[in-house]
Amino acid sequence: MPDGAEHRTFGKAGLGLVTVGALAATASVVAWSLASPSNDPVGAMVSRVGAGWERLTQWYAGNPVADRPNWSAMQVKLLDAQSDRGPDAMVRYGCGACHVIPGVAGARGTVGPSLAGFADRAYIAGILTNAPGNLQRWLIDPPLFAPDTAMPDMSVTEADAADMAAYLLSLTGAP
């Protein structure tokens, strides 16, 4: 009868190692699962690995990205903004109450149009050309450009508007 089969598979020392490893893994997972969202060693690790991978592929291609025009990056640069701060700002201003916005928590409103693939749009609300500066100004005061719009002026600060615009301009591809 296979009494103690596990012991034979691993050996005494191996069993000890596996136990210690399992306990350490459990402890780190518990620590991570209890930590507040701002403390995200796992996420940081993943993004570090991601960045390293990107550098590696660039190096492999022997063709640094900086040489090519990257319109999306340039638009963000033009705005002097950080697109990754956009989603937080959008939650704060309640954009999701009216719009579906990929990557924004709880943003599944159907009052206004979905903003998926926004970077591919030609016009903003059918009025302004979809350029970074226009988008930023639209977000700050929509009724200024479209007096009959239902979209209110939400007292958006210039910096937040720039972040949100940068984020929206990073949304490419039809949903």
Binding site: S33, L34, P37
Partner: peptide
């Protein structure tokens, strides 16, 4: 909702 410490 997110951010209440339940996500992970």
């Amino acid at each position: 909702p997110e951010g209440l410490g339940w996500d992970r």
